[in-house]
Amino acid sequence: MNATPDPEAPVDAAFVRRWLDAAAAAMDRESARLTELDSPIGDADHGTNMRRGFLAARTAVEQDPPETPGGVLVLVGRTLISTVGGASGPLYGTLLRRAGKELGEEQAVSAARLRDALRAGVDGVAALGGAGPEDKTMLDALLPALDALTGALDAGGGAADALAAASAAADEGAKATTPLRARKGRASYLGERSVGHQDPGATSSALLITALAETARGDV
């Protein structure tokens, strides 16, 4: 349905919009599960908030579609900041806004540039939230995804394979939050009682990376 993308620079505005559709669909589909994960260690609203934010972002992009991949990401980030609330709004908003700003005005970018953008976004999240690895936050999915993406690209892998590796790593990272004790955000107040629950933020982060892999594979 789209013009054949440049294999060297597959990530254009249309790619990011397909990712957004996949991400919004994932938040819609997984909303109840995210809220369920947020109940024992949070306040039972993560799925509702993420669903609302991504549906609003999709509407914003449909109404006034930016022409560059960076432009779409910045608009999605801004919309999330304005609609999600909680800590997730500023954190996910910053992730995508910084990623978009990294891409600037570029029309179509390589998987390596997408990796640069993801790194800029993840750095922004770490700076804003002050969390590090194994604090039981969204970074526990994003950092392994970034490492896997970098490793696969360095090994000469194509975009689809590299993003598939990132998706698997994000998923594993999210699952690996279960035995961790939360040190940031509302779950931190539970201390030892936060152990034994998978982190909802890491889980939603993994959904976003998986949507990226699906987009690169052409599933969406």
Binding site: D43, T48, S82, G85, G86, G89, P90
Partner: peptide
């Protein structure tokens, strides 16, 4: 006022 138990947004 934000959503239930969710902080308001900067706007």
């Amino acid at each position: 006022p934000g959503e239930v138990f969710t902080s308001p947004v900067p706007d």
